[in-house]
């Protein structure tokens, strides 16, 4: 079944307002390739349900209600209600930045994080995402959670650094290696100088609920790799136990 057209269009308008900030209806019409009268009608509808608002200078913007909707959406994911304390403990024990991410469409979306002691690695934070071809979170979810063929067939692969894996061949080999070893080593494939390690978090009936990862200075991650993987596995088990109780 095809999604209702109005909703797809509404989501396109929300997307462009979220990435570009306030825009005039004319600018929105250009960006989303829609006739201007349709944009006006959509904005009226979105204003009426409190998702956008029109400003005196005739631009439209997202309403601040999105901040609360985001918090409510996260709070309603009760399977992760224990995540914050698990991440806090992980940072306490390792000093690195810790993330919990979930698979949505073809991205790894971060739900929770806790910044490390020395540096916070900012490329990922709650609400931000990584493509499945890069980073510990992305590649963990590619290897354990996603349909690799579908991803390779239909999704764009972003290049961040010279070390980012982008070809189908490289990514298939990486998926095999990751499955064999049980965790991902992301070595400067998103940010130069930064490395990360990721493990899957199991959900019900053998599904993968998310990815737990730690990121920090590449030199530190490399020398402490075994200990960090041990910490990640212990934390993933703690998350699985809480999620199973929900």
């Amino acid at each position: 079944m095809r999604p209702i057209k109005v909703l797809v269009n509404a989501d396109d308008v929300i997307e462009v307002l979220s990435t570009e900030g306030p825009l005039t209806p004319g600018e929105i019409a250009d960006r989303v390739q829609m006739p201007r009268p349709s944009v006006y009608r959509l904005l009226d509808g979105l204003n009426a349900i409190g998702l956008t608002e029109s400003l005196p200078d005739s631009t439209a913007r997202l309403s601040l209600r999105w901040l609360h909707l985001a918090d409510n959406a996260r709070a309603s994911m009760r399977e992760w209600s224990g995540a914050h304390s698990v991440l806090l403990d992980l940072v306490e024990r390792t000093g690195q930045t810790a993330y919990l991410s979930v698979l949505r469409n073809d991205e790894a979306v971060c739900l929770e994080w806790e910044q490390g002691r020395g540096i916070g690695v900012l490329v990922l934070k709650p609400g931000r995402s990584l493509p499945l071809n890069a980073g510990a979170a992305g590649r963990t979810l590619l290897a354990f959670g996603a349909d690799v063929d579908t991803f390779l067939a239909s999704s764009p692969r972003t290049r961040f650094t010279a070390k980012t894996l982008t070809s189908g061949e490289e990514l298939r080999a990486d998926v095999d290696k990751t499955r064999g070893r049980g965790y991902v080593i992301s070595d400067e494939d998103v940010t130069e100088g930064i490395a990360a390690l990721g493990v899957p978090v199991k959900g019900r009936a053998g599904t993968i609920a998310g990815a737990l990862s730690l990121a920090g200075l590449a030199s530190e991650i490399r020398t402490k790799q075994d200990a960090l993987v041990g910490e990640l596995r212990r934390a993933a088990e703690a998350l699985e136990t809480t999620a199973a109780r929900v």
């Binding site: 989501d11 929300i14 997307e15 979220s18 990435t19 997202l62 601040l64 999105w66 901040l67 609360h68 909707l69 985001a70 918090d71 409510n72 959406a73 996260r74 309603s76 994911m77 979930v102 949505r104 979306v109 739900l111 934070k125 709650p126 609400g127 931000r128 995402s129």
Partner: peptide
């Protein structure tokens, strides 16, 4: 329940 889309958009805002 509310989707992850809200988390994405809210964080950009």
């Amino acid at each position: 329940r509310l989707g992850v889309r809200f988390v994405r958009i809210g964080s950009r805002l």
